[in-house]
Simulated assay, not measured.
Amino acid sequence: MDLAQITIELLLILFIVAMVAGLLDTLAGGGGLISVPALILSGVGPLAALGTNKLQGCMGTATATLMMLRARRVTWHQVKGLMLCAFLGAMLGATAIQFINTEHLNYVIPIVILFIGLYFLVSPTPVNVNSKPLVSKKRYQYLIIPTVGCYDGLFGPGTGSFFTLAGVSLRGKDIITSTAIAKTLNFSTNIASLIIFLMAGKIVWSIGLVMMLGQIIGAWLGSHCLFSINPKYLRILVVIMCFGMLIKYSYDMF
């Protein structure tokens, strides 16, 4: 991206986008559905958009993870093995995406975001009750978690919600516990992906650093509201903003 295209107005808009994405991602997941299209619409290339999104997203998930650990919603012993498996899966996915033709990504990314947006629209909100696990702890840790992590390395939008849904539906956890664990796993996958994108030089630093600040504020606000806001309404907001940006993106492309 040409540095001359980066204006104060653009940075301000992306700062606000990151703050909203951090807030929504902490509360309901799906922040990447907003931030990735916003980066592409601002003129950032597809791979650089994914890399820059990882840079700014790391700070949001780090803030949320710290808040979850400090509030004792999760413990380090509880999540360390899961975080390692998520980390390795994300490194694999982020490495693979580097070898995909950039021109193809111009079409693949909006298609992926479209399907994830539809998932957010039609999928039921997990209930806040414990139920019987459907898969063993080992299969969950060594198969399900790395698979979701690999997806995050490849694309990313919706990863936090996938981790939450997997915890509720496959391991029988209540939604509050599963959401808290998902924040730590999403932080792990973001760090892993960021390492690969850093090595590949696919990050727009001026934009990423500004968006990091927005993510911190949004995630901090979201962490304080996590247990008092109905996630159903937040999901609707995520979907509306997601499809709005996809319509604008499609209009600009065609």
Rank of each mutant, 00 (worst) to 15 (best):
H104V: 10
I100G: 01
P146R: 03
A96P: 12
F155A: 07
L143Q: 02
L118A: 14
I181W: 04
N190Y: 13
M211Y: 12
S178M: 09
V148G: 12
L170C: 01
V168Q: 02
S178D: 04
I100V: 15
K132R: 12
I191D: 00
F155D: 03
T125Y: 02
F163V: 05
M211W: 12
A96R: 09
N186S: 14
L105T: 01
A182D: 00
L134M: 11
V129I: 15
T102F: 03
D152V: 12
T147I: 13
M91C: 11
N130R: 14
S178I: 06
K132C: 11
T189I: 06
V148M: 12
H104Y: 14
I181T: 14
R171G: 04
A192D: 01
A86T: 04
G149A: 03
N128D: 14
L198T: 12
F87Y: 15
S169P: 00
A86V: 10
L213S: 07
P157H: 11
S169H: 08
L88D: 06
Y151F: 14
S136V: 02
L118D: 04
V127N: 11
K173P: 00
V168F: 07
T177R: 02
L121T: 13
D174C: 05
S136H: 10
D152I: 10
I97A: 11
V129K: 15
G214C: 11
G117K: 02
F162S: 01
V168N: 06
